[in-house]
Computed example of a mutant assay.
Amino acid sequence: MHISNRFSIGVHILVLVARQNEEDMLTSESLAGSVGVNPVIVHKVMSQLRQADLIQTN
């Protein structure tokens, strides 16, 4: 079974968001550094997560 990279990135982002403190603001740059990908890819995946109503962004 093949799992896409975007799926793995999405799960990683969801875990980081779930563990986030209220005071701390996660940026796409910090998420990209944690995942090890370009921030543009994080933006795209976060857009998909937002469209699925899994996250809220500012």
Rank of each mutant, 00 (worst) to 15 (best):
V40P: 00
I55F: 07
Q51A: 12
D24R: 14
E22P: 05
R6V: 05
V45S: 06
L49P: 03
R50A: 06
L31A: 03
V40A: 12
L26T: 05
I55C: 07
L54V: 08
S34C: 12
L16Q: 08
G36D: 00
L31V: 04
N58S: 09
N58D: 02
I41C: 08
R19Q: 14
L14W: 04
M46P: 00
H2G: 02
H2K: 14
H2P: 07
V35N: 07
N5E: 11
V42M: 06
E29D: 11
L14G: 06
L54Y: 10
Q51V: 05
N38S: 07
R19I: 06
I3R: 14
T57D: 03
E23A: 15
G10K: 00
V37A: 12
V15K: 08
Q56N: 10
S34I: 05
T57N: 03
L31E: 01
I41P: 01
L14N: 06
S8L: 14
N21A: 15
Q51E: 13
R50L: 07
V17G: 08
T57Q: 08
A32C: 13
N58V: 08
Q20W: 00
V42R: 06
V11G: 01
A52R: 11
Q48E: 02
Q56E: 07
S28E: 04
K44D: 04
I9M: 01
S28P: 03
N21Q: 13
R6C: 02
V45C: 07
I55D: 11
R19D: 15
G10C: 02
T57R: 14
D24S: 13
A32P: 11
L16H: 06
S8W: 08
M46G: 02
I13D: 09
G36L: 10
T57M: 11
S28I: 10
N5T: 05
V40G: 02
T57G: 06
L49F: 10
L31N: 01
S34G: 09
Q56S: 07
V35Q: 08
N58I: 10
R6D: 12
Q20L: 12
V11Q: 05
